[in-house]
Amino acid sequence: MSNDETDVAFDGPSRSQRRRDATAIFKLAESLVTLTDAQLERVPLDDDLLVEVRRTRAIHQPIARKRETQYLAKLMRRLEPEEIDAIRLVLEIDRQQSYRETAQLHQLEALRDRLIAEGDSALEEVILEHPDADRQQLRNLIRQANLEAKKQKPPKASRELFRTLRDMLGQTG
């Protein structure tokens, strides 16, 4: 063996690296397929890819959907790295926003439960923080929620209290 045969020039990424890259793109394609229409509009995709994402979403049979997702991933591998990074960035921002919204909803649920459990003492704290809140409406809803719980009825007033708190605090969800 001569010295020239042992010095192999770099031919690009290894087969393992190419496989890892392809798997990452496939996972990205799977993520795109699970998005809602509103979320999909925020993702920077050209028209061909957008049509393919929608076509893939329309398939419900698991094997056929996987095959179509693989085709979508194949099309995505033709994109420039910057385009793929932009797609990943938008998906990450959506994911973080979803986490924040979920956390806000949990806080609202905790506040509602606290109002129902503690009554007027908790209500006073809410009124101090939000003086424009309708005290009478909140007190009414708390009382109705407690009655529904005692009678084991559906929590209609509890849901209405949640919606009222959400509107009062200016949160959507």
Score class of each variant (00 low, 15 high):
Ala122Met: 00
Ser121Glu: 09
Glu92Cys: 08
Leu115Trp: 03
Glu80Met: 09
Arg95Cys: 05
Thr56Lys: 04
Leu147Met: 12
Ser98Arg: 15
Thr69His: 02
Glu109Cys: 11
His130Met: 07
Arg78Val: 07
Ile63Val: 12
Val51Arg: 09
Arg77Glu: 07
Asp48Lys: 11
Val126Trp: 00
Thr102Tyr: 12
Arg88Ile: 05
Gln144Pro: 15
Pro62Cys: 01
Arg55Thr: 13
Glu92Asp: 13
His130Lys: 09
Gln96Tyr: 12
Lys151Val: 01
Arg67Ile: 10
Leu72Ile: 04
Leu89Arg: 14
Arg139Phe: 01
Gly119Thr: 08
Glu83Leu: 06
Leu105Met: 13
Arg67His: 07
Ala110Val: 02
Gln104Leu: 14
Ala149Cys: 10
Ser98Tyr: 12
Glu68Cys: 01
Asp48Ser: 08
Thr69Trp: 00
Arg139Gln: 06
Leu147Trp: 10
Lys150Asn: 08
Lys66Gly: 02
Ala122His: 02
Val126Ile: 06
Glu101Gln: 15
Gln107Asn: 14
Ser121Arg: 06
Glu92Ala: 10
Asp94Gly: 15
Glu68Asp: 02
Asp94Ile: 15
Lys74Thr: 13
Thr69Asp: 04
Glu80Ala: 11
Arg65Leu: 00
Leu89Trp: 10
Arg54Cys: 10
Arg143Asn: 12
Ala64Gln: 11
Lys151His: 00
Gly119Glu: 05
Lys66Met: 01
Glu52Gly: 12
Tyr99Ser: 15
Gln136Trp: 00
Leu128Arg: 04
Thr56Cys: 09
Arg55Tyr: 06
Ser121Gln: 07
Ser98Val: 13
Val90Arg: 05
Thr56Tyr: 02
Leu108Asn: 06
Arg112Ala: 03
Gln104Val: 14
Lys151Ser: 04
Pro81Tyr: 01
Asp94Ser: 15
Arg54Asn: 13
Lys74Pro: 13
Arg88Ala: 03
Glu68Arg: 00
Ser98Leu: 14
Gln61Ile: 08
Ser98Gln: 14
Arg54Trp: 04
Gln97Tyr: 08
Val51Lys: 11
Asp113His: 05
Asp85Gly: 09
Ile116Val: 12
Pro131His: 02
Asp94Glu: 15
Ile142Leu: 02
Asp94Lys: 15
Ala145His: 03
Asn140Thr: 12
Ile116Pro: 04
Glu129Gln: 09
Gln144Tyr: 14
Gln96Arg: 13
Gln144Met: 14
Ile59Trp: 02
Ile127Asn: 01
Lys151Ile: 00
Ala58Phe: 10
Gln104His: 12
Tyr71Cys: 09
Ile63Tyr: 04
Thr56Met: 05
Glu80Cys: 08
Arg112Ile: 07
Arg95Asn: 07
Glu101Tyr: 13
Glu118Arg: 06
Leu105Gly: 12
Asp113Pro: 11
Ile59Ser: 03
Gln107Asp: 14
Thr56Arg: 06
Ser98Gly: 14
Glu118Ile: 05
Arg135Gln: 05
Gln136Phe: 01
Ala64Phe: 06
Arg112Leu: 09
Ile142Glu: 02
Glu52Trp: 05
His130Leu: 06
Ala103Glu: 14
Asp132Gln: 03
Ala73Leu: 00
Asp120His: 03
Leu72Ser: 01
Pro81Cys: 00
Gln136Gly: 08
Glu92Thr: 13
Ile59His: 05
Glu109Ile: 10
Ile87Asp: 06
Val51Leu: 10
Leu79Cys: 09
His106Gln: 13
Glu92Met: 10
Gln97Asn: 13
Glu52Phe: 03
Arg143Leu: 03
Leu115Val: 04
